[in-house]
Design a protein around this nucleic acid. Sequence first.
DNA 1: AGGGTGATGGGACCAAGTGCCATCACATTG
DNA 2: CAATGTGATGGCACTTGGTCCCATCACCCT
Lengths: 197, 197
Amino acid sequence: MARWQPNASERLVAAALELFEERGYEHTTVIEIAERAGLTKSTFFRHFPDKREVLFGGDTMAGLLAKGIAAAPATATPFEAVAHAMDAVSREAFTPARREFGARRRAVIAAHPELREREALKGLGLTASMTEALKRRGVPDLAACVAAELGALALKIAYECWSDTTDGDDFGEVARRTLGDLQAASQTLGLSGRSAP
Amino acid sequence: MARWQPNASERLVAAALELFEERGYEHTTVIEIAERAGLTKSTFFRHFPDKREVLFGGDTMAGLLAKGIAAAPATATPFEAVAHAMDAVSREAFTPARREFGARRRAVIAAHPELREREALKGLGLTASMTEALKRRGVPDLAACVAAELGALALKIAYECWSDTTDGDDFGEVARRTLGDLQAASQTLGLSGRSAP
DNA sequence: AGGGTGATGGGACCAAGTGCCATCACATTG
DNA sequence: CAATGTGATGGCACTTGGTCCCATCACCCT
């Protein structure tokens, strides 16, 4: 037994998600979240820097992606390195247990501009992290940018697909497939030529 | 002559930019911004929905991009349509007069997470707007996503290049060139093959 | 001259976020 | 067993962003 009720952070996340679903993000007070978790406002801000962050806690994604890219075989192309990172992230962060939570979280975020704003910032962080990791592999700057951008897009799309069902492929498979589809799509947008003769 | 001092919005923007440069974003109060512009807090929030938005006023970009894409020749590929939108936006929004302002604005935004967050959200808006416009041209969903994403990336990079010098190419040229470079880069990241034999 | 209109000023008010100090539960040490 | 230390929590005061409502002012129109 711990000193107080254990898992304060997780209780706060759960309380916040429930209240956001019930009353909406902007009609929910930090004090209300804390009270539902059996805590106080002070404690809330000791666990999260601000109200939005309660839904963006696990900030390990960027690091996992970077490590995954760094750990890819030296012979891997940029896209293959990104795909390698997807697998890493899938094993550590997108466990099957978080699937339903992901769907609820996503719905709440989509409904509130303030939360979408935070999500956008997190997306930039992921992109930057992947870009740096690719550059460290010797990938030229612009190529690293593009690969990271498409990797982040694949993550986003795959997250939607994955969290929308309770069964089916695990996250890694969905993400790899999505990345492949994006790669294929990017071949069809020719700048100077037409798509068909 | 107007009733009161004219150009209230612009005065607020100028005051805010100056104060953010002098004291930093978080050490500047909305009241201070308003006072420097010869106005009050009430009036500030009548012109801008929140403190961040004072640096993101001209919200015409998304519309201009969408119109530019819609106006591209029917035979244009997705990338060409995006390039067409760059030109439109260049003529209407990125006038030479705003070049120095752009550099100062960019420096302030880069220095403060809260502002970068807002910028990230604006970026999502641009991407979404371009994606929709491309879909309306009949471009398949995924292809539209990728083209819009790379278009937004090109805009971002081009904005940095363009605002970093007081002379040189106008925005449209920089953006088109950047888009071409990204297109070329995207061909070098092969998913299944290697870059060289 | 008198009323309409739109932008502004001012103040009350709520919630987010910060800082400081007291408190409590448990562990450690003598 | 008693004293002390430590880390998580509670509570309170305070600043600031942001909202609301109403009074006021400058100008236009009739």
